[in-house]
Design a protein around this nucleic acid. Structure first.
Lengths: 159, 159
DNA sequence: CTCAGTGCAAACCGTTTGCAGAACG
DNA sequence: CGTTCTGCAAACGGTTTGCACTGAG
């Protein structure tokens, strides 16, 4: 995969050294399809025989995000995930299963339209947006999982 | 404001004690309009003369969220914000200014439709969604703020 | 050879937890 | 009065940072 070359070009453009650690991290990120956590990356590096400190992984991910080749995602798990953009779907959104954590990607042109429309109404210059749907995937529902409602029996009415 | 009574009702429904601390935290949350951080809440409690430990605030917020009266929000700031739902706008989304952090609320019925449509396509049972638009508000743009592009000069083409 | 990068460990920061003492019901 | 809550402080987990050492250019 020649995607690492793009990152190397970015580093050179910025006058930053192309180190073996940066290449190794970029290699893992670009060759993995999914939404990787830092622990995922560390583990895959270890599997490839590389032993790279977490600090370096974080610092390299910062560069990858700044370069625009990788997106940082936060699905509310308490840590971040990273996803490279050299994908079929340039801009896409996510369905996140609350039970198994599976992430399904989808794309909606309408969202772009809504973003522009809403932003225009509020005199806001949109830079990016996130749209995530949380729920239960087919498999988890098949397995009988449900989301319990623990709230008030009737919140608003009987005030 | 009688909203605290709803929370007290919830506590009783669950067989949980209605303590002065829980009431105080709920009081702050329900009487504040915006998107409060735990520090905001702690400070406002202090201003009202209450001295309540952070742990208790967190524990009470958990209950408020479970009751369904308060929503937990994460705008990617590294901490959570809390917003009560006894509002004009039952379901709404946010425009977040990347410069000043201001949050503008908006509502779009189309989003509900898109959620249902996308979910149906992927055999997914939606529970909730989040749609956030990040960008620059009118004031910050007036003040000359721009978002610098630090990425590759041309990411994809010259591979 | 020089300067930035790396690895380690400590620091950080928001959040959670364990436990002795206080308070609700 | 028993049971749950509170406050404190320590623990936690992901992330960041300081510093001596290594390595890229």
């Amino acid at each position: 995969m020649p995607f690492i070359q793009l990152f190397e070009r970015y580093l050179r453009e910025q006058g930053l050294p192309v180190t073996q650690q940066r290449t190794a991290v970029a290699d893992i990120v670009f060759s993995s399809a999914g939404h990787l956590s830092v622990d995922d990356i560390e583990q895959r590096l270890r599997e490839s025989g590389e032993r790279i400190g977490k600090a370096t992984i974080y610092r390299t991910l910062d560069l990858l995000v700044k370069s625009g080749l990788v997106d940082e995602r936060d699905f509310g798990e308490g840590f971040k995930r990273y996803e490279h953009l050299l994908h079929r779907q340039p801009v896409h959104q996510h369905l996140v299963c609350l039970e198994c954590g599976k992430v399904i990607e989808f794309r909606s042109d309408e969202l772009e339209r809504i973003q522009d429309q809403v932003a225009a109404t509020h005199d806001f210059a949109p830079n990016r947006h996130r749209f995530e749907i949380y729920g239960l995937c087919h498999e988890c529902r098949q397995a009988g999982v449900t989301i319990p409602y623990e709230g008030l029996t009737c919140p608003i009415e009987k005030m």
